[in-house]
């Protein structure tokens, strides 16, 4: 039972790495907190649902489409809102308030558009029956979702560490003003990162019906809490830390569900408190960040 929980935790954790990755990338580059992150995920989930229901589009095909659409939407949204937020005396606090408001608007509009009912895509779309890994059986939909998450996270890592744009993105993450002084087009880099952040959330949404049971307009708030737990565990502003945070969260959740199921919803908060008390910079954090 423990082996089953541990492996399930890794699969689930990979998915939550993807869920948290976009939020951490946006925070790392712009130092703004996107409280509408979970709602972007919800929109991605509904996009996948409607693409599947109306056009019969497979989620694996829908994922890049949804990603591209989110990036395309994220680019103008960045220039419309983010520079104004960054000019504020306290951009982090202002962004929390701003994106909280945005989240409410998105949920309200989604409720009007989609109704309040649960929606999902059949698990068999990603493969029939269970898949056997190391002597254990897991839903194929889970394994595929976990694998797609791993590949997506790997692509983001490649982008950050093996491309010129990624290098400039990391330079902005280290020090925005110094990056600006060296001639980096900070706004262009940030706009791309913002778009990718939204795109990653939307792709995570495509696989939400398989990992989270079903989707509904108000699911974003719970996703935000989990995402924050994941990125704080890993390290705020460090996208790679998100992978570790996701896996730690996933394993802890599955072990809790196996042995102390009634207490499982306390887990994100317990992990947050624990990490903040023991290692405030997160597992992969190097130094305290001075905002």
């Amino acid at each position: 039972m423990l082996a089953y929980s541990l492996l399930a935790g890794v699969i689930f954790g990979l998915y939550f790495s993807l869920v948290g990755m976009g939020l951490n990338l946006v925070f790392g580059v712009m130092r703004i907190v996107n409280l509408a992150h979970g709602d972007v995920l919800m929109l991605g989930a509904f996009a996948a649902f409607w693409l599947f229901s109306l056009l019969g589009l497979h989620p694996l095909v829908a994922a890049p489409i949804v990603f591209a659409a989110a990036v395309a939407i994220g680019w103008p949204l960045y220039f419309l809102f983010v520079p104004r937020l960054l000019r504020a005396r306290d951009p982090e606090m202002l962004s929390i308030i701003f994106f909280f408001g945005m989240a409410q608007v998105v949920v309200a509009l989604a409720t009007i558009a989609f109704g309040t009912s649960e929606r999902s895509i059949p698990g068999r779309v990603l493969g029939n029956g269970p898949m056997h890994i190391l002597g254990q059986s897991y839903p194929t939909a889970w394994v595929v979702s976990g694998a797609v998450s791993a590949v997506t996270v790997a692509l983001v890592t490649l982008y950050l560490y093996r491309t010129r744009l990624g290098t400039t993105t990391r330079a902005v993450m280290v020090h925005r003003e110094e990056a600006l002084a060296t001639g980096i087009d900070v706004h262009r880099v940030s706009a791309i990162a913002f778009g990718i952040g939204l795109g990653l959330a939307a792709v995570a949404g495509v696989f939400a019906p398989f990992m989270l049971g079903s989707v509904r307009p108000a699911m974003g708030a719970d996703i935000n809490i989990t995402s924050f737990a994941v990125i704080v565990i890993g390290s705020l502003g460090n996208p790679l830390g998100t992978v570790l945070g996701g896996i730690v969260y996933g394993i802890a959740l599955m072990v809790m569900q196996s042995y102390f199921s009634s207490w499982a919803n306390l887990l994100p908060y317990l992990l947050l408190i624990g990490i903040l008390l023991i290692r405030p910079t997160g597992l992969l954090g190097r130094t305290l960040r001075h905002a």
Partner: peptide, 15 residues
Amino acid sequence: GVPTNTTSYTVTINT
């Protein structure tokens, strides 16, 4: 028992 907001049961089903 499981929390009311539980959305993932695979591990519980296995247990």
